[in-house]
Write a protein that binds this DNA or RNA. Structure first.
Lengths: 121, 121
DNA sequence: CCGGATCCGGTCTGATACTG
DNA sequence: CAGTATCAGACCGGATCCGG
């Protein structure tokens, strides 16, 4: 019995507060960065992995599963005929864009060192 | 080169993307919950600690230091004459409210199990 | 009692190597 | 290319302790 990775969320996630509830899914260093990348139009494992922050592949893999299970992203056949899978935001995922935008505003205004461009590559 | 624990932020935090930059500070399960609590008017260690999510005292303590160092909160003498310290949001901290609100909207719309009230106690 | 600090076991992260 | 496997070390979190 290999006892693989825990199915999905870290804790029992019985939080009733919507903020807490949201943070149960998004409250970590990487998840929203992946959402950001998909928002920017990236769709493939390789592209996420190549981001400037350098997410490790095992973490990326696990987060993608979690995002798909949470219905924030979906895994689809790649549009360009390549046989590799593509990931894209669902409506639920797209609904996170205002949150991302508010973080951009905050980062630009209050954190120096934040450049003007989002995810420039 | 021993290269011990990094002083405070988890990584080098040279991220130039404002989202990544923001997540370097807020990207964990607890930090935004503390900001939420302060937004709701709570000011004391004990109050944060008594929240429904049950943040451990050592984590709370560390996060408070981090928030103060990041200028998101400030530690002030308690208003009511008690000798215990009080914490409150700075302007930089208050600027996070739109982010919190967008998370509330998202949680309410997409995460069932999220009740209508924020941090009801 | 309150605001933390310390201790410590277990979990998770993240760098890297590996596989289909 | 898209992930899995591995594994040491970082971090979390529960309990306990302590000074005021």
């Amino acid at each position: 019995m290999p006892k693989k990775t825990i199915p999905h969320n870290r804790k029992t996630q019985r939080s009733s507060c919507p903020i807490s509830c949201t943070l149960d899914i998004l409250g970590d260093k990487w998840t929203l960065l992946i959402v950001r990348d998909m928002w920017m139009g990236y769709t493939r494992f390789k592209e996420f992995s190549a981001g400037p922050e350098g997410i490790p592949t095992n973490i990326l893999s696990e987060r993608l599963v979690r995002l798909v299970n949470s219905n924030i992203t979906e895994r689809v056949a790649s549009a360009d005929g390549s046989r590799h899978p593509a990931y894209q935001l669902t409506n639920k995922g797209k609904a996170l864009i205002p949150t991302l935008e508010s973080m951009i505003d905050w980062g630009l205004k209050w954190e120096d060192g934040a450049s003007k461009k989002v995810a420039k590559r």
